[in-house]
Design a protein around this nucleic acid. Sequence first.
RNA 1: GUGAGUGUAGCCCAGCGGUCUAAGGCGCCAGGUUGUGGCCCUGGAGAUCGAGGGUUCAAAUCCCUCCACUCACCCCA
Length: 416
Amino acid sequence: MYQVPRGTSDILPEEQAYWRYVEQKVVNICQLYGYERLDSPVFEDTGLFTRSVGQGTDIVEKEMYTFTDKGGNKLTLRPEGTAPVCRAYLEHGMPNLPQPVKLYYYFIPVFRYERPQAGRYRQHYQFGFEAIGEDDPALDAEVIDMAWQFFLSLGLRHLSLQLNSIGCRQCRPIHLNALKDHYARHTAKLCADCKVRLERNPLRLLDCKKSSCQVVANSAPRSTDYLCPQCGAHFSRLKKYLDLLEIPFTLNHRLVRGLDYYTRTVFEIQPRGAGAQGTLGGGGRYDDLIEELGGKPTPAIGLAAGIERMVLNLKKQAIPVPPLPRPRVFIAHLGNEARDEAIKLASRLRRAGTGIIMATGQRSLKAQLRQANTAATRHAVIIGEQEVKTGTVILRDMANAQQKTVIPADLPGLLG
RNA sequence: GUGAGUGUAGCCCAGCGGUCUAAGGCGCCAGGUUGUGGCCCUGGAGAUCGAGGGUUCAAAUCCCUCCACUCACCCCA
């Protein structure tokens, strides 16, 4: 028997109510904040991701699904959603539109070759939005507000918003050097992993959970203490706006993100007390990315969120989601002539917009009503030989077992 | 990529070397009067016990390899 490839899964009918629920909230929030939908291909030129996400990152180094097609093109199944949006922004002349350009994507599959766990998959689905062409911290606040309101609108509770600023091209290297110096003085206390991080990706040093390393991390220089005047002003205005909006945030000096393109504002939203795979959504500024991809210097900010993790948390928090609409009428029939009538009736009602489940095969009436019961339709319409002769049908109310004989023409009104 | 745990019908699971031609519950199918559901009763279908190999007179039960899931690391959504 075949089974799904590792780290992928089927989204079964009984799961769909959650996904549709999330979709409805996404569409609603995007409409409220004025974002327009953009869909991009599942695969892109490999270079788009190596250049944007960054050569030294885990995503590029060991997680991408990269292949060469028959034309010799190097392609990669997208490992994230921001770079494709930026590519589209440039490719379709959006720099000429009024800025910022606000775009969102929904239900896009993203691919990363990782060791699967609950909440971590090789193919998972993301929702995200991007605002390109504006560096006003009011926009940062709006984006964070939008993310926050979105998760609240799902009904999720006990969320925490982690916030940090990692500076820009000017001030980040200074902080980075201070960080390296600090750690270089404490190498003896570091774990093996951190010694590697020191060389490869110093920002990640702050993330280490080992207690000995945390001691070093606690006393490490903070990015917010090294911000240049512009970045410092940007960050304090953002915090002021968030206070104004009454959005509770936690400053987290260790919040660093795994993609190279982030600058200045970075943030994550997670359930309180979440495990390792807890982050529901995260994002930040990427003021250099558009330029890196060949455009003019263009500031931007965005967020990405994982749908599976939302569904996981909706279930964990026992948040009810509305059931999907289903047919409200079941048609049962006995005998060949009755079946002919049933077929015609089902079609007529459906054309008039009434959802119908039509009995198939030649099962007993008992079996047919059992099926109606499982399908939880409001009514059953029963056509037998008697009814065929008199040109009537039986209309049964499944809730109270009341039934009456009616003529088919009256059904649309009676079914409501 | 590293370490650990788990893997029995569609689902939940009992069994942990011979009494297993594998038990139970849910679900599914059918019957319990002649054309009628939900409760109840009865019956039925459905499992090469994750896959492959080995040990043994004997393996769902022990060992090895592989696959998958779960947890931690890592990474992130």
